[in-house]
Design a protein around this nucleic acid. Structure first.
Lengths: 133, 133
DNA sequence: TAAAAACCTATTGACATAGTGGGTAAATGT
DNA sequence: ACATTTACCCACTATGTCAATAGGTTTTTA
């Protein structure tokens, strides 16, 4: 189940993409439009700035802005950032995870195939694919 | 991320499928082979019996047994039972969920498509597909 | 009739989620 | 210059879930 962090992040990006007037958009406006607590969004948006998904500007006239075109954002990146790994099991989530069952695990192929499917889906889905206006 | 409940359930089914000698298999044997706490497995297996995935028999000579052929178990059913809904978002998980954003939600199509993909994958994957011996 | 097994109820520690609260720092319009 | 607006930062909390553990009772059969 995708948490609010990931879902809200996508909605913030969508909101910014559709209300892009060249200027910075205050978080308050986004929070109001989306009906989400501004305080909570701060936490999420902070991670997005750190990761280089958004640019933030303090002070009057400040706010947030996309730093790429909507078709250059993929949903997988956004979710991975906010949700942590998208892998279905720990052994696929952490690269150096040394599971003692690894060699003989009969379920690993299932999870590997599942992981690949999810990965392909989410990384090929772009922010622009979600835009309607 | 799939929890231990779902993953252990699959391993129990696999264990039963591969150690089927026509008799009931005690949970202790499964727990020992799989290296999982028997006490914890009890909780998981109980749900599987209630849902009709397994037959349990008390007393000496008792244990658990599959009640269908391995190719008649699909992984989706098992995970749905142990994990609850497999849907990525609440509005798709609960049928009567009345989200106020439903009509205008721009992310719903994404989650719907994602849900369908996961559903198709897991419900077409059979227990027999995971068996190696 | 004793052992072996399932079956049942309750409890626990650790962690994640979804926020809230109370600030400080930076930029700008007037 | 300065008040206002904005981002940015740190701590805290209530609630719930996860992954077990603990200690029993009932059922069946060798």
């Amino acid at each position: 189940m995708i948490s609010t962090r990931g879902r809200y992040a996508i909605r913030v990006l969508l909101d910014l993409a559709e209300n892009d007037n060249g200027r910075y958009v205050p978080l308050k406006d986004i929070a109001d439009r989306q009906g989400i607590s501004k305080k909570y969004l701060e936490i999420i948006v902070k991670d997005m700035v750190t990761a280089g998904l958004l640019i933030g500007a303090s002070g009057r006239g400040g706010g947030y802005k996309l730093c790429r075109k909507p078709e250059e954002y993929n949903i997988g990146d956004v979710l991975q950032l906010l949700e942590g790994s998208l892998a279905p099991v720990v052994c696929l989530a952490t690269p150096n995870y040394n599971c003692p069952r690894k060699a003989s695990c009969q379920t690993l192929p299932l999870w590997t195939e599942f992981d690949k499917m999810v990965h392909d889906f989410l990384y090929n889905k772009k922010l622009s694919d979600l835009m309607t206006q």
